[in-house]
Computed example of a mutant assay.
Amino acid sequence: MSQTVVVKTPGSTVVQSTRTQTVASHTTNTTVVQRESAPKTVVVTRGIPGPEGRPGPIGPAGGTAFTRQADAPLSALRVVWEDEAGVVRALDHDDGDHIDLIAGLTLTATAAAGDVTVQRSGPVDDAAWSWTPGRVWLGPGGTLTQTPPADGYDVLVGHAASPTRLYLDIQDPIQLED
């Protein structure tokens, strides 16, 4: 005859068995205790951060953005044109040679030749802006202005929805008469 008792506790299981054996008219009771450790469960709520990876391609966040090369220092929040090699440069409102090559508005800057992010349409936010809600045009050196130009080209870049938000919707340039 044998009897088994199983006791489960957090972290382990104890099995106790009692066996009765009869050998040559001699009866013995043997008690066997076996302890089995259950595998420990560890829950990691936050791992150790690994090394930062290479930035992925810019995706549209309500607009279209892409990365281009600048061949000289270039500020953020400037309207730029793109040449056939994919290099962007600031666009002036009276640059008749490149006015039809508008790429968009730079979202990042570069202190020397390097990558810049350019957005073509959609919302752009900047805490340093203080727009009056209304239209925004291309100004000198790729700057943005709420005063339409008196000469060169009239390029409506978009509209300010709030003091710190501009919706890019670049329109075709219109040549102004001198």
Rank of each mutant, 00 (worst) to 15 (best):
G96W: 04
T143V: 13
S121N: 14
T117H: 08
G96S: 14
D95Y: 06
G139D: 11
S130A: 15
R135A: 05
R135K: 14
A127H: 10
A109Q: 11
G141T: 03
T132P: 10
V118D: 01
A127T: 11
L144Q: 04
T110W: 11
T106S: 07
Q119G: 05
T110D: 00
R135V: 04
D92F: 05
G122Y: 07
D92T: 13
D100N: 14
H98K: 12
T145C: 09
D95F: 05
I99L: 15
W137R: 02
H98D: 11
G142E: 07
P123V: 12
S130F: 09
V116T: 08
T106P: 00
T110R: 12
R120F: 07
T110S: 13
T106A: 06
W129Q: 12
L138K: 04
A111R: 13
L107T: 02
D94M: 08
L91V: 13
A109Y: 03
D126W: 00
L107E: 10
D125V: 15
Q119R: 15
D92L: 10
Q119P: 02
D125G: 06
S130H: 13
T110L: 06
A90C: 12
T106N: 03
L101C: 01
P133C: 09
G142D: 05
T106H: 04
G139S: 14
D125A: 15
S130M: 07
I102Y: 03
G104T: 08
G104N: 06
A109F: 08
G142R: 09
